[in-house]
């Protein structure tokens, strides 16, 4: 735990000082939320469904900006070898990078959700919505961190990462959009099965990433 904590502490400290990713993630999220708000304003009767979609588009792309480069930055700087040469296991390295990525998404969501709630006039600060957003973010951060490692050594990684990541994220995204729309529409009972589905995929992604991460970052 000490090593995983050290990795998270290091990434949080670097991000707090450089604001390399969170600034871009936040700006992108707010731009998407504001732009889609104007677009969907014309169809008020579908506001709940469209709002849920807009929220998850914003979270998904903001996540890609930040998480997609978490390993690539280490490789570009040459510091990835330093992490590989430390006696930390691949799985623990994954958990450290995953933890830091998840924290950065949560920070962005903490700012974006109140803005979304105000603009769309939807209950985005409902505890159930916050839980759904958290469950979706866990899956996004887990897969994003894994595929950041897969693509970090490839020159065209910015193109390849979404191509690899999006198809695998589809189950979580569908569940997240449906669960969020259900809460917005007031159907709280129908939400639970979607949340369970998301948590199931979260668990699968975390376990697979934990087991495979070490092999992916080695030469």
């Amino acid at each position: 735990m000490n090593r995983i904590g050290a990795l998270i502490w290091k990434d949080v400290l670097i991000e707090a000082r450089s604001r390399q990713f969170i600034g871009a993630m936040l700006a992108f999220t707010l731009i998407v939320i504001v732009t889609l708000n104007f677009a969907f304003d014309l169809i008020r009767e579908q506001r709940e469904t469209n709002g849920a979609g807009a929220l998850w588009i914003a979270i998904l792309f903001a996540g890609l900006i930040g998480i997609g480069r978490s390993i690539a930055v280490e490789r570009d700087r040459g510091t990835l070898d330093g992490l590989i040469l430390s006696p930390i296991e691949g799985g623990s390295l994954f958990l450290g990078k995953f933890g830091a990525a998840l924290l950065s998404i949560i920070v962005v969501e903490a700012i974006a959700l109140p803005v979304f709630a105000a603009l769309y006039d939807l209950p985005a600060l409902d505890p159930l919505v916050i839980g759904i957003v958290l469950a979706g973010s866990i899956g996004l951060a887990a897969l994003g961190t894994l595929f950041s490692a897969v693509t970090s050594g490839i020159r065209s990684r910015e193109v390849l990462l979404p191509l690899l990541l999006f198809p695998l994220l589809i189950p979580i995204l569908i569940a997240a959009v449906r669960a969020t729309a259900n809460v917005f529409e007031g159907d709280r009972d129908g939400t639970l099965r979607w949340i369970n589905l998301m948590l199931g995929f979260d668990a699968i992604f975390i376990v697979l990433s934990y087991l495979g991460f070490g092999f992916l970052i080695e030469d």
Partner: peptide, 30 residues
């Protein structure tokens, strides 16, 4: 690797962290 020290062409230190923070980070990893 736990018994190995390596210096490559590029330093394994993080520019945003102080000298002490860099060393504390690796001390915690080890």
């Amino acid at each position: 690797r736990a018994r190995l020290g390596y210096v490559g062409h590029r330093p394994f230190v993080y520019p945003e962290l102080t000298c002490a923070e860099n060393l504390h980070f690796f001390a915690r990893l080890f």
